[in-house]
Structures are given as structure tokens and as C-alpha cells.
Amino acid sequence: MKLKGRAWKFGDNVDTDAIIPARYLNTSDPKELARHVMEDADKDFPSKVKAGDLLAAGANFGCGSSREHAPIAIKAAGLQAVVAKSFARIFYRNAFNIGLPIFESDDAPDKIKEGDELEIDADKGVIRNVTKNEEYAAKPIPPFMQELISAGGLIEWTKKRLKASQPPT
């Protein structure tokens, strides 16, 4: 998997209330959620973000609630992936479960500036900053997570398992 796009930059501890405020959670329609993505961190973000962009942030991205609406809003806004120093654990599993690529990197978040052009090579675990002509290492994705991604998310993965466990008719 190779991704290319322009980066938006956020700080540490971006919480799920900032990604998608609870006041919009009386719906789970991705399009509607996308209209408010990151609104409480930057109120103009939903109008500025373009399909194909990338998100870069500091430590503990996605902390707070278990709402899957958070990665869904990011994905539905057209953001291709999130690069951060670390992810809160429920956000981490939700992202893999719904098929939003996320990358942990120690140095990339500090070096990336807003507007930088990035190229991510997921298989090699390399994040290339085209604007700055730099390269950062991304932490390898555990084999099971790769399995989830290649199955197309947890639902497809479970479907296969359910089929396998049912006796052939």
C-alpha cells in the first residue's frame, strides 16, 4: 500500500471529543460526521480538508471515548491515513477494524509541518517527506493487523471465520 498527500498537523492528546464532538453523535451517518471532523480542535477544518489529505499528530491520538465515529469521520472526510507518535488503544483497534490506515512513528510527527507533501510506503514502513526531502521510519504493523487490513477490516475477517466454522451444507 502506497499513500500520497498533503499533511495537516495537530498536537498531543487529540481526544475523540475534538475529532467528533458528542453533540453530533445522535447520528452515525459518515457523511454527516465528516462535516464536523476535528471541529473542536480547529473549527474551519471541515471546510479546509480535501480528499486525499493526511493527518499528522503527536502522542496519544484519539484518546477518550470508544466512539468509532472518530475514525469514521476522519475516513469519510477523505483523509487517507493518520501518522502519530502513539495512538490511544481503542482508537488504534477501531482504525484497523474499519480499515483506516494509521502509522506510529517516533520522529515523523515532530518533523512534519502543515502542508508538507508526504509519501507513505506501508509495506516498507517508510514515510517520505517530499517537501523537505526527508525520510522517517514507521513502526511495523503486527501480522494480525495486516491480516485484518488485507481481509478488508474486521467484519470481512469475521465473515470468513463464520463461514469456516459452519459445516458445509
Partner: peptide
């Protein structure tokens, strides 16, 4: 729900997951 961890107070392992996790777990 992220505060599922509350039940640890009883000596249980309890943790918050996402909706897709719950969908899959409801079946399996």
C-alpha cells in the same frame, strides 16, 4: 464504551472496544 473498564473494580477483566468489535463479538 470506553468506561467498560469500570468492572475491574470487581476483579474482572473489562475493557472498551469499538462498535465493529462488538458486531463481530455478538456473532462469535
Amino acid at each position: 464504551d470506553s468506561h467498560t473498564c469500570t468492572y475491574g473494580g470487581l476483579g474482572a477483566f473489562a475493557t472498551g472496544v469499538g462498535s465493529t468489535d462488538v458486531a463481530s463479538a455478538m456473532a462469535t
